[in-house]
Amino acid sequence: MTQEHEYHVASFVAHGRPESSEVLSQEIIAIEGAEIHAVSEEGKIVFTIEANNQKLIAARLDEFKHHDELMSLSPIYHQFLTENEPN
């Protein structure tokens, strides 16, 4: 018998004021499963969140999306894979 497991990864661009990049980066790093891939001088941060399901990604993002220093947050990509594992 096998059990199906999901793996999700979603990418986002956060845009804050340039002087807030460090604060926003620290907040993103604190999100479980998050990884920063690029930070621009203009205050844009490209990052991904990985989780076992889409609801976890949404819940983790909800913690961040109301940050005072954040001007906009855009989803870029979401992919999920399923894997069958023997019990």
Rank of each mutant, 00 (worst) to 15 (best):
H8D: 04
H8G: 02
V9I: 15
A10G: 01
S11P: 01
H15I: 13
H15K: 12
H15L: 09
G16C: 05
G16Y: 01
G16V: 00
G16R: 03
G16N: 02
R17N: 14
R17H: 15
P18T: 06
E19N: 01
S20Y: 14
S20D: 15
S21H: 12
S21I: 05
S21C: 11
V23G: 12
V23P: 09
V23I: 10
V23D: 11
L24I: 03
E27V: 07
I28M: 04
I28H: 14
A30G: 05
E32D: 09
G33D: 02
G33R: 00
E35W: 13
E35N: 15
A38P: 00
A38E: 08
A38M: 03
V39T: 08
S40E: 03
S40D: 04
E42S: 04
E42F: 01
G43F: 11
G43S: 10
G43I: 05
K44W: 05
K44Q: 10
I45T: 08
I45P: 03
V46N: 11
F47H: 02
F47Y: 02
I49E: 10
E50L: 01
E50C: 06
E50F: 02
A51Y: 11
N52G: 13
N53S: 07
N53D: 13
Q54A: 13
K55T: 08
K55N: 08
K55Q: 05
L56M: 08
L56Y: 03
L56P: 01
I57R: 13
I57C: 11
I57V: 15
I57Q: 09
I57F: 06
A58H: 06
A59F: 14
A59G: 13
A59T: 15
L61A: 15
D62G: 02
D62E: 04
D62C: 06
E63V: 12
F64N: 04
F64H: 07
K65G: 07
K65P: 03
H67S: 14
D68A: 10
E69K: 04
L70D: 01
L70G: 00
L70A: 05
L70F: 05
L70T: 04
M71T: 15
L73P: 06
S74A: 03
S74T: 01
P75F: 12
I76E: 13
Y77W: 08
H78Y: 06
Q79G: 12
Q79V: 14
F80K: 05
F80H: 06
N84V: 12
